[in-house]
Design a protein around this nucleic acid. Structure first.
Length: 289
DNA sequence: CATCAGGACACAG
DNA sequence: CTGTGTCCTGAT
């Protein structure tokens, strides 16, 4: 590994925010190396991050090297993040304001689209550790070694050659069929993912939901965390509960909740979703009845 | 041994 | 559009 270097010193960073960004369910490729550092990979690059004295430090594998600009881009820690936060309606929404305040530096990671589609295909009715385990086994068996106990995503082209039964052995369960079928479709339509990336949010969403095993929730997760679409607002049971409890929306169905979220939180509603999700999950939202 | 998880899908009513 | 059962698997 390269020597530690200072990555960024921003006014609003916190250990909790960084930890939640890396471990809170938007990425499954990071593992803690200490109480305040993590190692992970994206696009076959290996990076270790460390939080100390309000500063994020980074170092990278000498063989599978990342550039500083790539790490910053991945973490979304630049002025556009500050601008997005400022665009959220925290001035009039005290619940959201509290979530933002309690998780300084929580960001939406800018991850590879193909990896996000893969991991979120595995996510249905699985917990974070289970998703990580299944994804890890696929990478270990079919991906490239990136170092000690580190494996890169094999890519869809390679996944297309794997039988469903083989995937079932790697703890994918009924999701094995989805991965197998999606891999076939992507092989037959090699431009599919780049069309998703270049489409606007609505079209990208309907493209993704046309794939087997991809419903509205998984499509939104894929687009938010891997498709640079901050308008995506994935609604899982946590967020649904938050909207019911703190926004009094229990009478709305999922589609209506999405409409509310876009109208209320604005063009960066996906970022608002992440703050609400993490705060709810960590029990940081006070009941102010 | 039964139930449930950070869903999707097929099929009622 | 709402409700229900099914699909794998591991945890409780």
């Amino acid at each position: 590994m390269s020597p530690w270097k200072e990555l960024i010193q921003a006014k609003n960073l916190s250990l909790l925010g960084l930890r939640e960004t890396l471990e809170g369910g938007q990425s499954f490729s990071w593992n803690a190396t200490s109480a305040f550092s993590w190692i992970g990979s994206f696009e076959s690059k290996v990076v270790e991050l460390k939080f100390s004295q309000k500063i994020i430090f980074w170092r990278t594998s000498l063989i599978h090297q990342a550039e500083e600009s790539q790490v910053l881009d991945y973490l979304w820690l630049d002025q556009s993040y500050e601008d997005a936060i400022d665009n959220l309606p925290w001035r009039s929404d005290l619940v959201l304001a509290q979530c933002i305040k309690s998780l300084p530096g929580l960001t939406i990671l800018n991850q590879p689209l193909e990896e996000m589609l893969f991991y979120f295909l595995l996510s249905s009715a699985k917990s974070i550790p289970q998703i990580k385990e299944a994804g890890y086994l696929v990478c270990k068996n079919y991906g490239v070694s990136l170092g000690k106990d580190l494996w890169g995503f094999p890519g869809w082209k390679k996944l297309a050659d794997i039988e469903e039964e083989e995937l079932r052995k790697l703890k994918l369960g009924y999701r094995a069929k989805y991965v197998h079928q999606v891999a076939q479709e992507l092989r037959n339509d090699s431009e599919f993912l780049s069309r998703v990336l270049n489409a606007d949010y609505e079209n990208a969403h309907s493209l993704l939901t046309s794939l087997p095993g991809v419903g509205p929730k998984i499509a939104d997760c894929t687009l938010l965390f891997g498709g640079k679409k901050p308008q995506a607002f994935p609604i899982d049971t946590w967020i649904s509960k938050t909207l019911d409890t703190h926004y009094k929306l229990s009478s709305l169905n999922l589609a209506q909740k999405v409409l509310f979220a876009r109208a209320h939180f604005g063009k960066f509603c996906g970022l608002a979703q992440q703050f609400l999700f993490s705060a709810e999950r960590l029990g940081l939202i006070e009941n102010r009845e």
